[in-house]
Design a protein around this nucleic acid. Sequence first.
RNA 1: GUGGCCGUAGCUCAGUGGUAGAGCAGGAGGUUGUGACCCUCCCGUCCCGGAUUCGAUUUCCGGCGGUCACCCCA
Length: 435
Amino acid sequence: METSPARGMKDYLPIEAALRDWMLGVILETYTSRGFQRIETPALENLDRLIGSGGGENEKLIFKVLKRGVKLEIAGADENTLADLGLRFDLTVPLARYWAHNQPKLPPVFRAIQIGPVWRAERPQRGRYRQFMQCDIDIVGEPSVLAEMELITVSVEAAARLGVRNPVLRFNDRRFLDSVLDWAGVPSEAGPAVLIALDKLDKIGPQGVLAEVARLELGEKASGNLARFLEESSASEELPMGFFAEIGLDEAVVADMVAIASLSACATLGGTKLVFDPTVIRGMGYYTGPIYELGVAELGFSIGGGGRYDEMLGRFGRPAPACGFSLGFERISLYLHEQGAHGAVGAPQVHLRISSPADYPIALAMADRAVARGVRASIEGTSKKLRAVIRHLLEEREGAVGAPGAWIAVVELSGADLKIHDVTGDCPELSWLRD
RNA sequence: GUGGCCGUAGCUCAGUGGUAGAGCAGGAGGUUGUGACCCUCCCGUCCCGGAUUCGAUUUCCGGCGGUCACCCCA
């Protein structure tokens, strides 16, 4: 019997789940301390809400759920009549529906936290799964760039508190990209293809991008202008104000970019670099303004990203400006794991071993006293070798996050006799176990 | 979804057309200085299915899973 999880999905060992719980706690604490409020939405949405939501390529990757109840008529039916629900592929579309449904009960400017699994039927790879957790924060009702500034600073703070070192936040603006395409003379129907080519700049280089653009046969003028744009397209901490002026970029867009760039002076950003990167595109079709991605040098993919999607909420009947930032939980967990964080939260620990059920009550009393002191306590029989138990305890402590290096003691208890094994070599006096 | 590589013990990996090995880990026991050392024994449908073959873990095909590159993205 095959026992591995379904393709692209994962089981988590206790030690892995503990790391995830710790991460979740840090993220929630960071977000709530900045005034964001947690909400929950269902994993399933009506299919017609997922399709046509502006999810771009992701709409092709929806896991569809068959109709249930009365017998399904399979023969001759297509998938659209057989399925009416789908697993969400992100948390933004559900949030838009949520806002439309609950807006009267929500604050005028709503700061939402949404943490949960999403599903995409992609071909799995490292750092890329078919079920993965996203940690979204969104601000609904704030039209100005203040919302982006808040999302970016808070998300970067969360990443820093998780132990992500030297991240880089690359930002761009959909309105700038539209403006570039317009200035270059790219017909609107060729826009998406040009953007896709542009997105590959870091992989295939300027020549590669130009080769792809040439294939689109946009004509001499547009190609030439795009080549000119590529010269200006190096990611940089300085905004190319001259180029902005040259293409006649709207002053309001320039002002927003200046505001975002100014965040590099903020304390909570710590060592995070903020760079303007004209090649940040992002696939979601629903973005309308600033867009951004958070990355680290060690990984070949981003650990977070987001943008403004002012038009999407209107699709659900209640128009409102909105933008969001999503942290990639699995990718950050992968990063932390590769940085050596293999373990659980390491609070001090007493492991009590008893050889007879008669000793359970007294062991329980000791465990209670330990717990009252903030010490984890577990009670177990002696069916396993002491050696194996100790080895496993030390293994779990290895690379622990939260309270790394906390002491561990194994206490063998038999009637009135206590034998204390100082597993970590630094455990304190445990006389309080008896009183 | 397309293409490449890969899939042998819990882990890291050898190996072979005649049903399999090492190191570490685990289990049972012995010794003991009982969290050390040493000793004995145990632990594998060689991913699944089909084909070729007297015979396949080893070749071929298909599937499943992983990984890398596309694509896209958290």
